[in-house]
Design a binder for these strands. Structure first.
Lengths: 162, 162
DNA sequence: TGGCTGAGTCTGTCAAGCAGACTTATGCTC
DNA sequence: GAGCATAAGTCTGCTTGACAGACTCAGCCA
């Protein structure tokens, strides 16, 4: 029980926000599917062809995203064809934009391509590039080193702690 | 070739920034491991115990993160014990803070707990809570609906397009 | 010398991903 | 109305990865 033990070891990860979020988003394909919908590719066959994932996996991921309220099915009908469905973002889905933009931003910085970025988040209003910035409630913009992740009011002590 | 085909279908996903980033971060465990290191849990056995992942998977993930330059091994020695290693974030790792904070922020909004958030990103300087905001190069703070993901200079046309 | 501990490695089982073929529903053309 | 085209799935068998639990290895200490 010396102070070498990090303080975080005393807290459970059971209800951790990152765990609970990753249970929904944290697999190889979900972000690929979301990317397609974000860039405007909304139909099953188009998503499958562009993201190159097995149909079965796509079926399963779409169902999971619908169940979690991130996308919804929306009926559409091309002239001379029967009704089908496309997949659109709900508000919860749209609110994943900061996550997506943060990923793109990191990738552009640490895995750059010779030709420049293949995709760019853009402000529809003014056409300028969009990025994410860290901001604290007092209005500062801390660097990563100035940020710490601390236990909050919902933190639960860990069994076997210490 | 009617205009029902989304514009994005014309572009390849092969070099997509999200794909390339997800090849590194996009699996069930990587973010859990990073979370531990972010909150200050740096030693193999501590990470394994708190994140509850199989040792073999932890070994493999740590090696991958080191290879991608996101963490590094750092020797340490407790009094009366032999030298061991702990894992620390590199600058590239620290720069994942916006991704992590964006995930926490989304989770707190859409998967809230009765007791409040279990973890809170905090500005070390002033103690206030840290969040991420979307910001365009002209200084606007667009809502998700005002953001669009567009092909950039490195976009490649898709074979079989149309 | 023998035991303890952190940090792995090994082994066998089982779930998930995968490619590719098959199915289903509907509307169109002839 | 028969047959064809198409989007959106299901089905099948193979392969890969996750997993729990046991084993190993190196250095320190009693």
């Amino acid at each position: 029980m010396n102070e070498q033990v990090p303080e975080a070891m005393r807290w459970s990860t059971e209800n951790c926000t990152i765990s609970r979020t990753m249970r929904i988003l944290g697999d190889k394909w979900t972000f690929h599917v979301l990317r397609e919908i974000f860039v405007g590719v909304r139909r099953f066959e188009d998503i499958r062809a562009r993201a190159e994932l097995p149909r079965q996996v796509l079926t399963e991921r779409l169902a999971a995203l619908i169940e979690r309220g991130i996308i919804r099915r929306h009926p559409y009908r091309l002239p001379g064809q029967r009704e089908r469905y496309e997949y659109r973002l709900t508000q919860a889905g749209l609110d994943l934009y900061p996550v997506l933009v943060a990923l793109i931003q990191w990738g552009d910085q640490y895995l750059p391509l010779d030709d420049g970025p293949p995709i760019v988040p853009q402000h529809r209003g003014c056409g300028e590039e969009v990025s994410v910035v860290l901001q604290c409630a007092a209005g500062h913009e801390p660097t990563p080193r100035e940020v710490a992740i601390r236990p909050g009011p919902g933190a639960q002590p860990r069994a076997l702690a210490g």
